[in-house]
């Protein structure tokens, strides 16, 4: 038994144990904290599987951003809903457990029954990658070979923002998002929010730029940029912008709009929707990725900032 196998086995057991612990946690906050740790461990598994791109995304979005969103929801629930009394009967819960186990069993069966070697498109991606001018096959798949998926994903983020904004109370429309209550100035958080953003913005841009040749890309870079923005907002050093601002809305749709424009232009210039003229593939992809990074950063930051609220709502709530 090699050392690597022991580490992998330990990691797997830890994840399974943490999963059970998260499901069984008696408080919502506890379950969310378990979920965040679970996401970080899953990111380690992706690193062990040599899928560093997925690991970065899992750590930044799966664990960090989703964890923060869930934590916000857990603390916002009215106290009565926070008590984990079983809301349904034993039969319903048994049925839910049975269905979940069936899904898990089905997935396990599919993975175990795969022919050996498993069917893969990796050789054709490797063969066609030079045409895109990219060095990172993951970015190649995301932006060129399966561009339609990425385009739809970036549009989904805009829909998510519309969904969050539509939760605005009647007098809150057009105002600033109100979920992030800034901490008092002068705490340790203020210092962190002054020191970290210069480093974080550099790392975010680096992740976007290096995504062409190494693990990284628009989603990972955008997530880091959004984290820096949210840090400044939580520390009270920056106020979330009013949702009626035109520049904010332009920033949100810039990435998907540019992606769609280049994709439609491809019908005439390269013969297919979302195809790039080979001579300009690399610069076009970089421009699209840059706009996507900006839009993703804005969307993720605004997701955490919540729906707009009337300025007086801050005093009404505890």
């Amino acid at each position: 038994m090699s050392a690597a196998l022991i580490v992998d086995l330990g990691l797997t057991l830890l994840i399974l144990g943490l999963g059970v612990w998260t499901v069984a946690a008696r408080s919502n906050n506890g379950a969310v904290v378990g979920y965040i740790a679970y996401g970080l461990l899953v990111a380690l598994v992706w690193v062990r599987l040599a899928a560093v791109d997925v690991a970065l995304t899992e750590a930044a979005i799966g664990s960090g951003l989703t964890g923060l969103l869930l934590l916000g929801v857990a603390t916002r629930l009215p106290r009565s809903a926070r008590l984990t009394r079983p809301p349904t009967g034993l039969g319903t819960r048994l049925l839910a457990g049975f269905l979940s186990a069936a899904v898990a069993g089905g997935l396990a069966a599919v993975v175990l029954l795969l022919p050996d070697p498993a069917p893969t498109l990796a050789p054709s991606v490797a063969a066609n990658l030079p045409a895109t001018g990219l060095g990172n096959p993951v970015t190649g798949v995301l932006i060129a070979f399966r561009a339609i998926d990425t385009l739809l994903e970036s549009v989904v983020l805009v829909f998510a923002i519309i969904g969050v904004w539509s939760l605005a109370p009647k007098d809150g429309w057009g105002e600033r998002p109100g979920w992030l209550r800034p901490a008092p100035l002068g705490s340790a958080l203020t210092l962190l929010a002054q020191l970290l953003p210069p480093i974080g913005i550099l790392v975010g841009i680096h992740l976007f730029w290096t995504g062409a040749t190494a693990p990284g890309g628009a989603f990972q870079g955008g997530a880091v940029l959004a984290a820096m923005w949210v840090l400044a907002m939580i520390a009270g050093l920056a106020r979330p912008p009013a949702v009626s601002r035109r520049w904010l809305r332009l920033m949100l749709v810039a990435g998907p709009a540019l992606f769609l424009t280049v994709g439609i232009a491809g019908i005439w210039l390269a013969g297919a929707f979302l195809a790039y003229p080979v001579a300009y593939a690399k610069p076009l992809i970089l421009v699209i990725e840059a706009a996507l990074t900006l839009s993703i950063a804005a969307a993720l930051g605004l997701l955490l900032a919540g729906p707009p609220e009337h300025p007086s709502a801050a005093e009404r709530q505890p």
């Binding site: 506890g30 603390t75 926070r82 008590l83 505890p318």
Partner: peptide, 8 residues
């Protein structure tokens, strides 16, 4: 304390 999650 207002935001801590108490055990049932």
């Amino acid at each position: 304390n207002g935001s801590t999650d108490l055990e049932p």
